[in-house]
């Protein structure tokens, strides 16, 4: 049952991801991205990470993709053919990388290197998913968390400085 769900979700994710770059209408691309976000969230739910699933939809589908659509509509792009001219170059790069990946996988199979066993995190049955994430975020991973916040703050200030250049020129 769980495998069935996984293959459905993974299949749709792969399909819609391809459609995002293959479709010519940017609005349709955005819609396939929306479907993909929902299926990624579904994948999180099957992994019992409900909090991450909800945040995935709130942040990506609810905010980022809406802004993306906003820009598409503002520029009124009905068809976007510019990037489809890159097809030969993209094929060349894609085939090269695919060959490398296949070669690497074959090599690993030959060398008989030990296959990494997945680390199974200790289950947290007593407290919920959200509480567990909060605990870990503010104890074990507090330094990376704060660094990420700082980087985001710098990005926010940078965006304001770039967008509001006229404001600073008047003062200076």
């Amino acid at each position: 049952m769980a495998q069935l769900f996984f293959f459905y979700l993974a299949g749709i994710i792969v399909l819609t991801s391809i459609l995002v770059v293959a479709l010519r209408n940017p609005v349709y691309s955005a819609l396939s991205l929306l479907i993909m976000f929902f299926h990624v969230a579904g994948l999180y739910v099957t992994l019992h990470a409900e909090f991450v699933a909800a945040v995935q939809i709130i942040v990506y589908a609810g905010a980022i993709l809406v802004l993306y659509l906003f820009v598409v509509m503002l520029l009124n792009l009905h068809r976007e053919d510019r990037y489809h001219a890159q097809f030969p170059l993209a094929t060349l790069l894609g085939v090269t990388i695919l060959t490398e990946v296949i070669l690497l996988m074959l090599q690993r199979g030959d060398s008989g290197a030990p296959v990494a066993t997945p680390v199974i995190a200790p289950p947290t049955p007593a407290i919920g998913n959200t509480e567990a994430i909060g605990e870990v975020l503010y104890s074990t991973y507090v330094f990376p968390f704060e660094v990420a916040s700082l980087i985001l703050l710098v990005a926010m200030i940078g965006a304001i400085v770039l967008a509001k250049q006229d404001l600073f020129e008047q003062k200076g």
């Binding site: 909090f51 945040v55 939809i57 709130i58 589908a61």
Partner: peptide
């Protein structure tokens, strides 16, 4: 569900 309010926020944004 234990993330009820997040679920509502997620779908109102849709």
């Amino acid at each position: 569900i234990n993330i009820g309010i997040l679920y509502i926020l997620a779908f109102t944004s849709i």
